[in-house]
Every structure is written in C-alpha cells, then in structure tokens.
C-alpha cells in the first residue's frame, strides 16, 4: 500500500485507486502469461511467428512472474516498472517479426494491444512513483480541536443530567440487573 504524495490535495491518505489499478494489472499479467504458456503454439501461429513457440512460452513465464510479484508485493512499484520493460521487449519482438510476416494484420493488432496496456502501465507507474511509501503528515492539524472549552476532564460525564430523554432510553424493566 502506498499513500497519496506531496502534490495530492489529500496527502496522507492511502492511494487505494492506484493500488487497485496496479493489482488489476498484476492479475492481467498472470492471465496473459498463463495463456502464453498453455497456448504458446497457437499464439505463435496466429502472429505468423511459427518456430518461436518457445519464445512465446518464455515470455509467458515472465508475465506470470511479474504478475505474481505485483499481486503479492507490499509495494508493487518496481514490479510495475518491470512490466513496462517487458512491454518494451514485446514491442521489439513484434517489430522484429514484422518483415516478411504472413499474418501482418494480427501482428499489428497485437502491437496495438501491447501499446495500450503499456500506456496503462506507464500511468500506473507514474502515479506510484509520485506517491510515497509512508503516510505524509496530512493537511491541517486538528490535534487541539477538542471541543471542550473547560477541558475533557471537566466535561467527561458532565451531562449525566441530560434533559428530554424520557421514552428514548432502555425501559426500567429491561435494564440490566446489578452485576
């Protein structure tokens, strides 16, 4: 869990939105990785990369490892940066396979999808990097806002003579017996 940082108007609060985005990307990574491992042959054929099934499966292992890291780590930031590095590797691999490829359409769709997820990873990594690992002092100091002008000792129990409570309390017959 990280916290909203110095440039946030709510600094000091847990940054739950970015954390949820990061964990979501982690689960996506695990799902994609498992698909690459289990259907490496089919994916390689669909991308016109016959003969590179092993590479696809290796990338799948990388995805699963990164995803597990994101989902389980206290601080997912380094793992999200790891995803971005992996995305770059994917894009380079797809670009290298473009020349003379028989399934260029599928390759371009795959590249566009990877680019989209890379953008999401980058947004997430940027937000995580701007947040902080420990809560910052929050805005406003309310430590002295007691509400008791005469002090809490004077006020504690001062209103046991409350007026107007008739009919809104526990009926006498239902009161607890003395212990």
């Amino acid at each position: 869990m990280r916290y909203e940082g110095p440039r946030s108007p709510r600094r000091g609060h847990p940054d739950t939105a970015t954390d949820a985005l990061a964990r979501g990307l982690g689960w996506f990574s695990i799902g994609l990785g498992l698909a690459e491992i289990l259907a490496g042959g089919a994916i390689a054929r669909a991308l016109g990369m016959r003969g590179q099934e092993g590479l696809v499966r290796a990338y799948g292992v990388r995805e699963v490892a990164t995803g597990v890291g994101i989902v389980t780590a206290e601080d997912p930031t380094p793992w999200i940066w790891g995803r971005i590095a992996g995305d770059a590797l994917d894009l380079v691999t797809l670009a290298a396979a473009y020349e003379g490829n028989s399934r260029k359409d599928n390759l371009l769709i795959a590249a566009a999808a990877v680019a989209g997820v890379t953008a999401l990873d980058a947004i997430c990594a940027d937000r995580l990097t701007r947040s902080t690992a420990v809560p910052m002092p929050h805005i406003g100091n309310y430590r002295t806002r007691t509400g008791y002008p005469r002090g809490i000792r004077e006020s504690r129990g001062a209103a046991t003579d409350v007026e107007g409570s008739e009919g809104m309390l526990t009926p006498a017959l239902l009161k607890p017996w003395a212990a």
Partner: peptide, 28 residues
Amino acid sequence: RSAILLGAKHVVCIDNVPERLEMARAGG
C-alpha cells in the same frame, strides 16, 4: 463528544481519513 459528556467509559471511532481520526482523538 456527546458520548464523553454522557459519561462513557471508552469511546472508539472508526474511519480511514487521517485528519478526521486525529480530530476524533482530540475529542477523547
């Protein structure tokens, strides 16, 4: 504050907003 005025032994407040929790602690 009302529970304190009415003489509760212990008041516990549940939230997740740091400054609101700080104000709750200020109130006892």
